[in-house]
Simulated scan of single mutants.
Amino acid sequence: MTRIGVVGAGRVGAVLAAALRAAGHEIVSAAGESTASKTRIADLLPGVPGGKPTDVARTCDLLLLTVPDDMLENVVTMLVGAGAIRPGQYVCHTSGRHGLAVLEAATAIGAKPLAMHPAMTFTGTVVDLDRLAGTVFGVTAGEADRAELESLVTDLRGVPMWVPEDKRTLYHAGLAHGANHLVTLVAQAMELLAASGAEDPAATLRPLLSAALDNALNSGDAALTGPIVRGDVNTVRAHLVQIGETAPATIPSYVAMAKATADRAVLDGRLLPIRAAKIVRLLDEALARVEEPHLVRGRRTDAGWFEKQ
């Protein structure tokens, strides 16, 4: 059993602390300033006292820092400056972007740095506890501390994936590009379907997206279907016209993803370069139209989607 303190009882911190508590560790205290954080502590960690970050750090053997990436270094520096971190104490953060370097202030006084990032999205509720089972954690630690970190991830029912210090940002970029941008993509797709008359855009997309995601995870680029890989220039042109008239703010993301899709389809030999060039030209023209500041949304004319007002 390890005495654990949590600084930053947000969606991630409160859930991980609850899971570690269920695994037999003692959560001695948790720091969270917002009303939402205090509610999470009460709901997920009943009986665990709240406290200031310095008080939390002083009471534990393993300090779990679950604060935003850009705040992490300042929090560590503040805690070290206040004398709240001690030699031999484990200091573990959950940032995907950062490795051990961000904990240098703590390492310099003899603390043991750990980096442990769950490749999972969190709601900050009990729903997340079951989702931790089988979740991959991107972990980084010194050789002497690897066993401790592996044990911690095992207690969370996760799977450790060792990430080199200099590859942490790349690891996190892959997750963010896949998960965060997926949310934006799906939200835009639902808006287009709603505008087309779909009463339940989510229900329309769910089976298609579920199949596409499974196929992509299993087969990569080989799973690609649709007008880009088929070289259907006229279909892409029609998409751009309708999106430009209905949801012009979606054009930049459509163009970016269509270009990336065309590039990958050409590389694997499924799209002829001459067809790809025609598609890219259409995409560039569409993007130029929505980026011209003197054009405003209006009715379609023979000259294009917009007319000057």
Rank of each mutant, 00 (worst) to 15 (best):
A265I: 07
L209S: 13
R264E: 04
I251P: 01
N215K: 08
L295S: 09
T184G: 04
G220D: 03
T225Q: 03
P273Y: 01
Q188G: 14
A194P: 00
A195W: 11
G269Y: 05
V290M: 05
I243R: 03
L193E: 03
I279F: 02
T184Y: 00
L283P: 07
L224T: 15
N234P: 03
A189I: 07
P227N: 11
V290G: 07
A202D: 01
S210G: 02
P227E: 01
R299F: 00
G304R: 11
L272W: 00
L213R: 08
L282R: 07
A286M: 05
Q242L: 08
D263F: 03
S196L: 12
S253L: 15
A258K: 09
A288Q: 08
N218K: 15
L287Y: 03
A256N: 06
I251W: 01
A286C: 05
A187F: 00
E245S: 14
V280L: 05
R264K: 12
R237C: 01
A286D: 04
L224W: 08
P201I: 11
I228M: 07
V241E: 15
D232N: 09
A211P: 00
A222P: 01
E245R: 15
T235V: 13
A203V: 11
K278N: 10
E307A: 13
E292R: 15
T250L: 10
D284P: 00
G244Y: 05
L213V: 15
V229N: 03
V280E: 10
L224I: 14
V236S: 04
P293I: 07
I243Q: 02
D200T: 13
L287E: 15
E199C: 01
K278G: 11
R230H: 06
A187R: 06
V290C: 08
S196E: 12
A260F: 01
E199G: 07
R206G: 02
D221E: 06
A198E: 10
E292F: 09
E285Y: 05
T184K: 02
L240A: 11
L217W: 03
P252V: 09
A216I: 06
R270F: 04
A187T: 11
R299G: 08
L282W: 04
P248I: 05
E199A: 13
I274D: 08
K278P: 01
A222D: 10
A286T: 08
D200N: 15
V233G: 03
I228S: 09
Y254M: 12
A258G: 08
G269T: 13
G197T: 10
F306T: 15
L209Q: 11
R281T: 12
K259N: 10
E307I: 09
E285R: 13
N218H: 13
N218S: 15
D214G: 09
A203K: 14
A256R: 13
V296T: 11
L271S: 05
L240I: 08
V236E: 02
V186G: 02
N218T: 14
A258S: 15
T235R: 03
R206P: 00
V290T: 07
A247P: 01
D221H: 09
L224C: 11
A303L: 14
R264Y: 01
R297L: 02
V296E: 04
T250F: 12
T246I: 13
P293A: 10
G226R: 02
Q242E: 09
